[in-house]
Design a protein around this nucleic acid. Sequence first.
RNA 1: GGCGGUGUAGCCAAGUGGUUAAGGCGGAGGAUUGCAAAUCCUCUAUUCCCCGGUUCGAAUCCGGGCGCCGCCUCCA
Length: 472
Amino acid sequence: MGLKIYNTLTRKKQDFSPLNDNQVTMYVCGVTLYDELHLGHARAAVVFDIIRRYLEYKGYQVIYVTNFTDVDDKMIQRAKELKITVFELAERFIEEYFDQMEKLGVKRATYHPRATEHIKEMIELIEILKNKGIAYCVDGDVFFRVRKFPGYGKLSGQSLKELSAGVRIDVDEKKEEPFDFALWKKAKEGEPSWDSPWGKGRPGWHIECSAMAMKYLGESIDIHGGGKDLIFPHHENEIAQSEASTGKEFAHFWVHNGLVTIDNQKMAKSTGNFITLREALEKYDGEVIRYYLLSAHYRSPLNYTKDSLQEASASMERVYNTLESIDEVTFSIKKEANLHKVYPEIESLYKKFFQSMDDDFNTPSALAAIFELVRKANLILEKPSDKNSKLILYEIAEKIRKMGGILGLFQGKKKKLDEKAKDLIQILIDVRNILRQEKRWDLADTIRERLQKLGIHLKDEKDKTSWRISIT
RNA sequence: GGCGGUGUAGCCAAGUGGUUAAGGCGGAGGAUUGCAAAUCCUCUAUUCCCCGGUUCGAAUCCGGGCGCCGCCUCCA
């Protein structure tokens, strides 16, 4: 079975194979560092992290690049408001970005290039376009002459004519035609600027991605990704710039994740309609947020409601409960279990997981396979365990952890308590059990409830009381 | 107005031609428990926005309608 990926360019799911042997080059548009991240950014990051991990699981050597836009209009404005430099603003949000991504379990990219560190490459690219007569300079600004690129509109599925009909922006009088876009912007007073053949200025937004993608990954890349809102104009323009300059196909697969909505309205900073990642992380473990973001197919819209994360948390608890129960039961047979016998029922669900992932990264379906295994395990756990059932349980836990690993879930990075805290809990349990023997239920229940509020769940079993920590 | 997408139970969400429409959350009843929690069992869409059509057979294909969303301006 082979991997199929939906390609925005062809509007079809296509068999995936890399341009070069075993190597996959992947560029994903990153964030502009002018404000906090929200769940929408988190979704894009997690989605492409999954794609990257799955390709790696498949044995490909993935070179993954995602950029930081560290200079643009909004950043300049924000820096002014905060009375700091654009550079300081960028530094602040980069640090926060890595910190939050780590909590979400997003692996670092191979490269995280910053726009301002690639001005030279951008200027070179603009020069090529200018020499070809595709770019033109007007009074310190440089524009891309869209009419000169015949393929313009192929990604967004619109012709130049259709686009022109919908123009509702104030057209810059310097442009020859409304849809020409800026490659280089003339410096304004008090703004960061760089020297160029056309005078002081700064790069337009689209050029950075073309320049950096080509620098790190070559003229043609396997996968280019980003949110659906970037299809037009950003990615359309990237294609125009890149392909006009090289004459080669820029990206073989264009992959776009659906947007996160709240009350069915797009989550966006510009509208004030958003949940920041920080807020979400204050209330829930990063793994819960990650799970939530994977609970819908990556191309579908994902509507956030106030209960979404609670629901995700409850679902994850189910898996963790089972894994812990299995660990308790199979503790003694670990060594033997490593022989890995084959159990057809387990194998078929294991297969379902990979078939789902192969089908354009269908994570909801893949997660369902995990839950079906959880159910099987719970059924076995109901009965008194014998050696054979322990072996099966061990195998199930192994498989769940392996599948979870690909999704970056269920790896048990749970809150650890130090020995003293554990001893304290044990004291409370011992005291409570004395109270229970004396049938002083009100006090016993109070202890249980208060521990519960701290995320420590007590389980009264036949002859002992055990405890565990919840993930949220 | 143009382009793209979407409409599946109380909620979230798979499924895109064929025996019982995944999975999760929530809810109801039962088992278990001192009571809980966890877990198990049963129930919770005779039906997939509506109307036509194609077909032996459609949630799944086609036509029409309605609703919602995104893009066309910065945006993951």
